[in-house]
Design a protein around this nucleic acid. Structure first.
Lengths: 234, 234
DNA sequence: GCATATTTGTCCGTATGTATA
DNA sequence: CTATACATACGGACAAATATG
């Protein structure tokens, strides 16, 4: 447990504290953020030996964590070859937007008065505007995702929340292999705001209409950019 | 590998053959069917030692399988206490139907002509009718689930398919602690048929209207029956 | 409330199979 | 084709937590 001398893991800090979750889940948490934040880029292999050493956990525990993330579609498990950070195909991008349209539109359409979860929606809009002012493009993308996560959360369903957490985690994998995330997210800021305004006055159907065209536009643009970005290796 | 003498596992059959999947996933498959078919009822603990012996796999491998099924919400993992077959609360039932309404209704509403996947829908209706004629009530429930899975599949999304596979697996847990599944499923047979007829002529919105009231009715009835069935242990 | 047995959590060593240089 | 590296899976070990009497 007190491994050799590497202390970069950041696992021991809350080890003795309140170990409410298992080691495997904490390891999975660490790896998940590493992946979604782009530290491990799509396509790279995650060696059991190396990462196990780096995080100071045994291979058994690490394999449990791998299994979790594989199930979340962040890793792919090739038998006897190891685990790799997922590389999404264009059909995956299309499917991600298919799910987004279903879930986000249905959540928004049902709105008839200013919804209970409107605070999160407005907050995400505000965060996005601030990120642009400060030219923090990474944060801009995050705020955009939070905005749409807040939209989905209007359905008030824990299972929908979890579903969309996974959907957006996958979507981040797409953004990480995309050329210019700034341009992509920036142009949708004002449209997010318009959607928020419709929700503010309880106009669900109006918001849905804006959202539907938003999602179509974003999908087409992303598919195009993605095809260009990944064409080199096809 | 050639364990003692128990051959009840059914794991070795395709062991030497084409072992394309890992042992943990095969173990998870076995346990999943055991659970969804009601062999392991909600609430029972699954001992690492016992099941590991019964299936002839090591604890490490079994724990990976447990981890998978926990992630699918079929098992719950209590730290240092083990894994248990999930017991759903009423709020879970409500949330399951919330997701069903979102997904199934959206899939059905989009229909404008007889959909490509109509064959599966019609087949499920036919299976249900046959099951009733033969008084096979277990099969009746299965056919009913297949019908609604086929509805969701009309959206043409792999991720939606996987989502609903999980949703219906959870729903089976509810059925297994319910008093009289026959009555429950039987009364919805004719309504399934009506929905199928609307789809057959490409009337998506009409089908959605029927489906929405169907889901509301089923939810209310199930919540009521479930509250009664689990009141004994509360 | 205490002592004991059982079970889980985690790690390690190792034999076997598989892929790749 | 051989060699090497790695993943797969097993079994054993011990600590820690929990359940039982």
């Amino acid at each position: 447990m007190i491994t050799s001398d590497e202390g970069q893991a950041g696992l021991e800090v809350d080890r003795g504290l309140l170990g409410r979750t298992s080691t495997a889940e904490r390891v999975a948490d660490v790896l998940r953020t590493r992946i979604t934040e782009g530290f491990f880029l799509p396509g790279v292999r995650l060696s059991e030996h190396d990462i196990g050493n780096a995080l100071g956990v045994s291979r058994n525990t690490l394999r449990e964590a791998f299994r979790l993330l594989t199930h979340e579609r962040l890793l792919v498990h090739e038998l006897n070859r190891g685990v790799f950070v997922r590389m999404l195909a264009i059909e995956d991008v299309v499917d991600l937007y298919r799910v987004r349209k279903i879930v986000e539109c249905s959540a928004v359409r049902a709105v008839t008065e200013r919804p209970a979860g409107f605070g999160r929606v407005a907050q995400a809009v505000e965060d996005g505007a601030q990120a642009r002012r400060r030219q923090r493009w990474q944060d801009l993308g995050t705020a955009n995702i939070h905005f749409h996560q807040a939209l989905a959360a209007l359905s008030g369903s824990p299972r929908v929340d979890e579903l969309m957490r996974g959907i957006f985690a996958e979507l981040r994998l797409v953004f990480h292999v995309m050329a210019d995330p700034r341009r992509f997210h920036e142009r949708y800021l004002v449209r997010n705001q318009e959607i928020a305004e419709r929700l503010d006055v309880g106009d669900g159907p109006g918001a849905e209409k804006l959202l539907a065209t938003y999602l179509d536009d974003a999908e087409h643009q992303l598919v195009e950019a993605y095809a260009k970005g990944t064409a080199a290796e096809a």
